[in-house]
């Protein structure tokens, strides 16, 4: 356990994990469109990216900050992968809300919400014309997603990924315990956990180091809490996409955890993939 809490850099490779994330997200989108019949109109892709980058450029220009477009690309792709809407305006709105929240909703000099999560949840709550489709990834991709997630763990370090890992561990535990209590065959909890949407959420949304607690203990507690709330909303209140809501409504807890467990804030390494080739 103690070895997990080494500084994040101990296990990292010299590349900004956001490039890796972008690669996985693009791969997933392509796979989903080509082989899983996920309907993602080109206009939605364009709307999400243009709105996210535009909002980012507008805010950074106004605040005289470096543009830092990479995070915005990650956010827009998260939105494309998880959010569907009757028209592209809702997708663009999700992107605008996501990026704006980074600049407008701040506390103690850090943004409160996970940007793409906040954008998606806001739009889901504003309009019935938008929906997330947790079933669309099916169950066949789980090994690929698990491997892709392990890749991110290698890049970010186990310590930084503790939110994702504890979420998966606790959510899996709850699902199996529930199944054992109900007397359900193992195929049922396995089917529930192999859902691609859960793994994409855990590895590629929940892992955001900018909005998760600063310390390993904080991240461990936070990931576990999000898992418990997700399980409660999903199994007791029958809310689809419970994990998205669970994360959005849990964000204030990060500040409480940071208050009790003070640690170093994360900073992106800004390392270009070309570094790997040198």
């Amino acid at each position: 356990m103690i070895s997990l809490f080494k500084p994040a850099t101990a296990l990292t490779l010299p590349i900004d994990p956001r490039y890796y994330q972008l690669l996985v997200q693009t791969g997933l989108l392509t796979w989903g469109i080509l082989f899983l019949q996920i309907h993602v109109p080109a206009t939605h892709v364009a709307a999400a990216i243009i709105a996210a980058l535009g909002t980012q450029v507008a805010f950074t220009h106004y605040l005289k900050l470096p543009a830092n477009l990479l995070s915005s690309m990650n956010s827009s792709l998260s939105i494309i992968l998880l959010l569907h809407a009757a028209n592209e305006y809702w997708i663009a709105l999700a992107s605008v809300i996501a990026i704006s929240s980074k600049f407008l909703l701040r506390y103690r000099n850090r943004h409160i919400f996970n940007p793409s999560n906040f954008g998606i949840v806001s739009v889901l709550m504003i309009t019935p014309s938008a929906w997330a489709a947790p079933g669309q990834w099916g169950q066949a991709l789980w090994i690929t997603l698990l491997l892709a997630g392990c890749g991110l763990v290698l890049l970010m370090g186990v310590s930084r990924m503790l939110t994702s890992l504890s979420f998966l561990l606790v959510f899996s535990g709850l699902t199996f315990i529930r199944a054992a209590w109900l007397g359900d065959p193992l195929s049922i909890p396995a089917h529930q956990l192999q859902n691609g949407a859960v793994l994409i959420f855990a590895f590629f949304m929940l892992s955001d180091p900018m909005t998760t607690p600063n310390t390993p203990w904080g991240r461990l507690i936070f990931g576990s809490w999000v898992a418990i709330l997700s399980g409660l909303l999903h199994y007791a209140f029958y809310i689809p996409n419970a994990f998205l809501y669970a994360l959005a409504f849990s964000m204030p807890i990060v500040f409480i955890l940071n208050h009790y467990y003070q640690g170093q804030r994360y900073h992106w390494q800004h390392l270009h993939p070309r570094r790997l080739l040198k």
Partner: peptide, 18 residues
Amino acid sequence: DRNSFPEDLMFQTTGDNA
């Protein structure tokens, strides 16, 4: 069958009216 659909069917209404 039991193998291909182990769980009950859960649904949601989407905003898609195409």
